[in-house]
Design a protein around this nucleic acid. Structure first.
Lengths: 195, 195
DNA sequence: CCACCTCCGTAACAACTGTTACGGTAACAA
DNA sequence: TTGTTACCGTAACAGTTGTTACGGAGGTGG
């Protein structure tokens, strides 16, 4: 039987293990044994914590979303003005260093896993909706006199651009270097009049 | 033993089978037996045609790239002017109908599979380089008086935006509808002065 | 000291994986 | 007919997968 309400520290270890395996070995090798090895335990602990593999992945994804949300909120709070907030928050979605690149690889892995798993798809949708809402709000703050429709369109275009750049950077980091990605973001912001 | 030089029709059937399984069942269920079933044959034929699973995936990806290239070239040739060519070619990269949505799901699947397979990564890079080169050339034609650096930056930003929108649409087609995606593309083109 | 209970490692299960070996079938040539 | 050869289905192989069942270690309360 599974006891999902117990040791939060162990759950965190397992979540990080899922993250590590997905980032470094990919979805095809994301097995329960690989996760257990990465967490420094056996499959017994994993299956005692979660009823099955899908539940493990779903929990891991949820936790990653919460962590990402907290990180982004801190970035937004630390920004001196709305435009800086928008740029810094969007920059956090790119693949600029090892943690953010890993996050992008994990993102692609979960997206690929969502094809078969409706719960993972629902989780993706919920997180992305919150993300789009945040960017929309930041764009509105950065351009207070825009009509709502323009705000939304520009926000979604920025979201798509960042997501695409981050994904492309995971497979071709020599082309989409951190400087290149940042340049693309700044060029897009400038083109929309948000520089 | 494998005879890769023989029946091209069979290879095409297998490539389409890989495409179908990847689009509808995802990377996790992309097994040789699933491919054989989708192709209407047995694993014997698959393994006779290709030395192993990786070679099958690599060949399938290569063939898909060639087909995509031919399709895009026809679109470009049919466009009346450079700006229309740019827009139509980019539109082909979005998830607007069933074939293009399937293509995006397959794209994400292969990207996730590239984490473990350097040959798939190299194939992705080569295809994406050619794709970026095409968009760069089209941007240069659409804005002949721009300096090369600006052409390149805008082209890469457009590539990233289209890739991101297509990927997001595969997981949330109700939010990123065809009209929404087209709107994002047009808004981005307009923002860059390419409308 | 002991019963109890939580936690988790061990070992096994059936199903599935990629891959190999073998056999049969159909076409074609002599 | 007979021999040859390309083609491909059948069946099996060893390894891996998710999952289950069991047992023991270690604390806790009486």
């Amino acid at each position: 039987m599974s006891r999902p309400s117990h040791g939060g520290a162990t759950d965190e270890r397992l979540t990080r293990a899922v993250h590590d395996v997905l980032a470094r070995q990919g979805l095809e090798r994301l097995t329960i044994r690989a996760v257990a090895t990465a967490a420094g335990c056996t499959t017994g602990l994993v299956m005692h914590r979660f009823p099955n593999r899908r539940a493990l992945l779903l929990h891991a994804r949820r936790t990653m979303h919460e962590n990402a949300r907290a990180r982004v909120e801190a970035i937004e709070a630390a920004a001196p003005d709305p435009r800086t907030a928008l740029r810094d928050v969007l920059r956090n979605g790119l693949s600029l260093d090892e943690p953010t690149t890993d996050a992008s690889v994990v993102w692609v892995g979960f997206l690929a896993a969502s094809v078969t798993d409706p719960e993972l798809t629902a989780e993706h949708r919920a997180h992305n909706a919150s993300w789009r809402q945040r960017i929309t709000r930041l764009v509105a703050s950065a351009a207070p006199d825009w009509p709502a429709e323009r705000v939304r369109t520009v926000a979604y275009a920025l979201v798509a651009m960042v997501e695409g750049a981050a994904a492309l950077a995971t497979a071709d980091p020599d082309t989409f270097t951190p400087a290149e990605q940042t340049g693309l973001l700044d060029a897009t912001l400038a083109a929309h009049g948000l520089a």
